[in-house]
């Protein structure tokens, strides 16, 4: 049978070869998974959260397994902008990968500097503004939970760079739609949701919090229904294209997000379980669309609202 479906998707100013991306913080800078498959297969690679200066990260333990998921409190360990530009980005470009850089600032100025510097170098297709890392005091969450602060920050970053801007939203709020609208009013092109849900685990032998950072971010299938609901709500609240994520392991999970309104999806925790998750989902999505006689992802995006 002839392969009918065209997996390309458009997200505002961005066109991806397929709608399955690797989520920030789960795929390193791409090299770790290169032995398994060529990273150019990814719809896009969102690299680990990048800060202006190098960040050491949080004290261990940084991980705790939970039912159907895990908590992490890495604390944005990364080499900083300079090393990223000199060492990591050239390596990434050599593979013709669609690179999205996730940026986290300790202040509005740092976000602006990161955006300006990164938009001046070739090889990056978009920036993802991390407004929602729950694991560092200055991980953006202080901006990410206030609508006014989001609108102000996004508009400043918008003025500093010409690259498509993705704003990553936290689920740790009462009304995510309000934040989505704030990001839209600030000039965001695309929204990605959700980041991890803040949680904690107590070590009953010591009676103390298990993680070195005390709290961590919950990811994995445990959070999927929450994330699907939020994508569904935000789809109604804004006109912006959405990237959905939260516990995607199988193609049906990706379909749920797309039917809820996501134009693309990102895979995070599942990469740790099966390094081949992203290429597996791309193929399975192709098979699904063909079997349904659909031309492409457009046929299913937002289906739950029709």
């Amino acid at each position: 049978m002839v392969n009918m479906a065209d997996l390309r998707v458009r997200l505002g100013p961005l066109t991806l070869k397929n709608p399955v991306m690797a989520a920030a913080g789960t795929f390193g800078f791409g090299a770790e998974y290169a032995p398994f498959f060529a990273p150019e297969k990814l719809g896009a690679l969102v690299v680990n959260g990048l800060t202006l200066r190098p960040r050491e990260g949080n004290p261990p333990p940084r991980l705790a397994e939970t039912p159907a998921g895990m908590l992490n409190a890495i604390g944005l360990q990364n080499p900083g902008l300079k090393i990223f530009l000199e060492e990591e980005l050239p390596r990434l470009k050599s593979g013709r990968v669609a690179v999205i850089v996730n940026i986290a600032g300790e202040s509005e100025e740092e976000y602006v500097i990161l955006a300006r510097e990164l938009s001046a170098v070739p090889g990056i297709i978009a920036l993802e503004i991390n407004l929602s890392c729950p694991n560092v005091k200055q991980g953006g969450l202080q901006f990410g939970t206030s609508a006014a602060a989001i609108a102000k920050l996004v508009s400043k970053v918008r003025q500093a760079c010409a690259l498509p801007l993705i704003v990553k939203l936290t689920p740790n709020v009462t009304d995510i739609s309000e934040l989505a609208r704030a990001a839209e009013s600030g000039g965001a092109d695309i929204l990605s949701l959700v980041n991890t849900l803040m949680g904690m685990v107590i070590d009953v032998d010591t009676g103390r919090p298990f993680l070195g950072n005390i709290t961590g971010g919950l990811s994995g299938p445990a959070i999927r229904p929450v994330a699907v609901r939020m994508v569904y709500e935000v789809y109604r609240a804004t006109g912006l294209p959405l990237i959905g994520m939260g516990g995607i392991m199988e193609v049906d999970d990706a379909l749920q997000f797309m039917m809820a309104g996501a134009r693309a999806v990102a895979v995070g925790t599942a990469n740790f379980i099966d390094p081949y998750t992203v290429p597996r989902l791309i193929s399975a999505l192709d098979v699904y669309l063909d079997a349904k006689g659909f031309n492409g992802p457009e046929n299913i995006i937002g289906a739950a609202h029709r």
Binding site: T26, G28, N58, Q77, T269, P275
Partner: peptide, 26 residues
């Protein structure tokens, strides 16, 4: 030994602090 997720260096979960040449890092 540390708690691990990916096993490949991508998730940066299994951190241990190492001192080399007077500088320490995870």
């Amino acid at each position: 030994e540390e708690r691990m997720a990916c096993g490949l260096g991508a998730c940066q979960g299994c951190a241990v602090k190492i001192r080399q040449g007077g500088e320490s890092s995870y």
